[in-house]
Amino acid sequence: MNSAVANNPTLLATPAAPARSKGYWAGVMKRLSRDPVTLVCGAILLLMLAAILLAPWIAPHDPYQTSMIRRLKPVWFQDGRYPLGTDELGRDMLTRLLYGGRLSWFLGITPVIIAFGIGGLLGIVAGFAGGWVNMLIMRTTDVFYAFPSVLLAVAISGALGPGISNAMLSLTLVFIPQIIRVSETTTTAVRNLDYVESARASGAGALTVVRVHVLPNVLGPIFVYATSLISVSMILASGLSFLGLGTRPPEAEWGLMLNTLRTAIYSQPLIAMLPGLCIFATSICFNLVSDGLRSAMDVRS
């Protein structure tokens, strides 16, 4: 989907800046604190996270308890006993959205984290080692890069069959090459900086150089890039569920809820649209936070 962000030079992490000191991070925080959009979006995300983590304690109802008598009831049904109404099987929408958020967030974030670990490691190794190691890693990456991300995700899920673990596997495989590319580019740039060259020349161990000079400069940009992938991952994951390739009933997940509530769009349009709104809100907040982080960390701005 919007993974083309990866190929967009202006959206990419900045070229390696000089080694970042405490002063730099203070500057980043200062710039962030002056960015109301990022702060608001960050706050919304934190609130959402808290709500879904606390779902078992704050959700008003059982997420699986069906009732045919109170199916598809409007918002504020029974004077707020069902604040967001009920779904097609009479389950409380607020509860389902809270529990659904857990799975949607999990499906959105886990592949990015795993890809961040694996892709970051491989990219740094490729960038730092250069030579045939770089060649091997980067050419393999190119192959997976040759698949549009939705297609790759659908292909893998389609062949393996539906299910949460298969969906996560396919999403992770989609993101790894993207993160490898970003981290390799950044690492290569850092490696070629004069002072890093001289540190290597002066006989410092490779690990030391990586730890002292490379990681601090590289992790930031990769991290920022990874945050921009979360929104992509969430939309992709919900899309897979919507197609019937992700989560399976009765699990609550926003994409799947959107799918099962489709036919209610004629009788309870608002209810049918709620899961979509949740996906949209989360996704746009992650995007804006990622934008804010990037411009705060970009010394040129």
Binding site: Y64, Q65, T66, M68, E88, L89, P162, G244, R248, P249, P250, T260
Partner: peptide, 22 residues
């Protein structure tokens, strides 16, 4: 889909843990 999901929930009350292959 909704009918089977409903039955899945109804049977859960009687100690069935049904999963579906679509």
């Amino acid at each position: 889909l909704p009918m089977n999901e409903y039955i899945q929930q109804a049977l859960k009350e009687a100690y069935f843990d049904i999963s579906f292959e679509v």
